[in-house]
Write a protein that binds this DNA or RNA. Structure first.
Length: 313
DNA sequence: ATCCAGGGAACCC
DNA sequence: GGGTTCCATGGA
């Protein structure tokens, strides 16, 4: 088994090894003219990711620590280096699905990031029934219109970088401007504004909801109580923004591979709430309870790239 | 041109 | 309980 490691190269740069950077997160911007370069803003600081080879990259920032945590330790957590790919599927799975096991090998090192809960909440509220490109455009516009421009840049970043807006920034956003950032969808803009208001007021405590001891069903209930958040988006927030690797979101792609690869559910359009929970129960039954969502993301990625011939990013 | 893209909710019976 | 329609827009 490969050891997962982060190496300090120099002051503000660490090298992350045995890790695929898939651009799964909507807050990472792909460089327009330099392939393999991604940028984002974390804790107010510009951060640059540079691909070194398919399974390792360097992360550079002007800050010496993020959220008060030394760089190396922060990114060990951010990139979930405590989770090894070999932990995702057990022997029974390998035995039952040998072909699929072989196909998943190229995804060794694909990690689910531990991202900021609020960023994840808003960005996935932007992800309803539209393509990745549209979701990214909305997130990018939200940052440009309501985020803060970072003061210090990083070598290699030529475009101005904006942080993701704070809850209070979107809570008090001009409705028309916010709608323009949300694909002209006024309902979505209103939902994001209201959720941000609750977070800003402390009525929606995302840190408290991130408590790993909270039962997943309770977390689901808390998040789906918000307008604009159904089971799928709630599970995505839990998985990508709260480190709940046991949360298993089902979107159109997941519904397809559950049917095609595992015979779970038949090809059918529309996921009713009851059917969603039924399919989720079957999936967790197959993949185990603790890392089912993490494993599901590998399957999601494999399905899109090898079966549907879609781009990773 | 037609269909789909990491859904959700209001509304129908 | 389910099924249908709308929201919106860019790309294939």
């Amino acid at each position: 088994m490969r050891s997962n490691s982060i190496t300090i190269i120099r002051g503000g740069t660490v090298q992350v090894e045995h890790t695929l950077f898939s651009g799964q997160s909507f807050v990472w911007n792909k460089s327009n003219h330099t392939p393999g370069i991604y940028s984002s803003v974390i804790d107010g600081s510009s951060v640059l990711i540079q691909q070194i080879n398919p399974t390792s990259f360097s992360v550079t920032t002007g800050a010496n620590n993020l959220y008060g945590i030394p760089l190396r330790r922060f990114f060990e957590r951010y990139f979930s280096l405590d989770i090894a790919t070999q932990m995702l599927f057990d022997e029974e799975f390998h035995t039952r699905f040998p072909e699929l096991t072989a196909r998943l090998l190229y995804l060794e090192g694909l990690r689910v990031l531990r991202q900021d809960p609020y960023e994840t909440l808003v960005t996935f509220m932007c992800a309803q029934g539209i393509g990745m490109a549209m979701i990214r455009r909305q997130v990018s516009m939200l940052c440009r219109c309501f985020g803060r421009e970072t003061k210090e840049g990083v070598n290699g970043i030529d475009t101005p970088l904006f942080s993701f807006p704070a809850p209070s920034d979107l809570a008090g956003a001009d409705p028309e401007l916010l709608r323009g950032c949300c694909n002209n969808n006024s309902v979505r803009a209103g939902n994001i504004r209201e959720a941000s208001r609750l977070v800003a007021l402390g009525k929606l405590d995302l840190q408290a909801l991130s408590d790993p001891s909270l039962p997943l069903s309770e977390l689901q209930a808390e998040l789906t109580a918000l307008k604009g958040i159904g089971y799928k988006i709630a599970d995505c927030i839990a998985l990508f923004g709260m480190g709940r690797f046991d949360a298993f979101p089902i979107d159109t792609h997941v519904e397809q591979f559950l049917s095609a690869w595992f015979g779970i559910g038949s090809h059918q359009k529309g996921l009713s709430q009851k059917r969603y929970l039924h399919l989720q129960e079957k999936a967790v039954d197959l993949l185990g309870t603790s890392l089912s969502g993490y494993a599901g993301h590998h399957l999601f990625h494999c399905w899109r790239t090898t079966e549907r011939n879609m781009k990773a990013f």
